[in-house]
Amino acid sequence: MSHQKLHIASCYALLLCYTLLSLSHCVDGRSKAPIINLKHFIGCAVREFTFMAKKPGCGGLHITTDACWGRCETWEKPVLDPPFIESYQRVCTYNETRFVTVQLPNCTSDIDPSYTYPVAIRCDCGVCLTSNTECITSV
């Protein structure tokens, strides 16, 4: 698939994601938040995520941030030469982030209490990059 077709497919996925996230409906004349069935959602979106920040020698801290979440379309095409298949495996990945640093509580005097984590600004379906995502390359 050419780079241009892949770009067009990515733009279509973004448009679909934006449309799904921006839809709202009215009940009794009042605007309601969009209802999206996440079991059937195909695409990549920014979603709120809470985790426990930990570091040896410090107490833990619950952090709520924005992270990338979603399922991206993948496909395979048979080819005549080994490995006899051409795979297009895209993942929901970070395209734009900012970093936030917080101070963990109860750190021992020899430990820096700073803890830095990413906040997702924009997420897209794309090639898995080991620089910011855990990628499974073989089974």
Rank of each mutant, 00 (worst) to 15 (best):
L6P: 06
H7T: 01
I8C: 05
A13H: 08
L14H: 06
L15V: 10
L16R: 07
C17T: 06
T19I: 05
T19Q: 04
S22R: 08
L23W: 03
S31G: 04
K32W: 07
P34C: 03
N37H: 01
H40E: 04
F41T: 01
I42C: 00
T50M: 05
F51T: 00
A53M: 12
K54Y: 05
K54R: 06
G57C: 04
H62M: 09
H62Q: 05
I63V: 15
T64L: 07
A67E: 03
E73M: 13
T74E: 09
W75R: 14
P78N: 14
P82V: 13
P82Q: 12
F84M: 11
I85P: 02
E86G: 01
T93D: 01
Y94Q: 13
Y94A: 12
V100D: 09
V102M: 03
Q103R: 02
C107D: 05
C107K: 02
S109I: 04
S109T: 01
D110I: 09
D110P: 12
D110T: 14
Y115D: 03
Y115F: 10
P118E: 10
I121E: 14
C123E: 06
D124Q: 04
D124C: 05
C128Y: 13
L129N: 15
N132L: 15
T133R: 11
E134S: 13
E134W: 08
C135H: 14
T137D: 14
S138A: 08
S138P: 02
S138R: 14
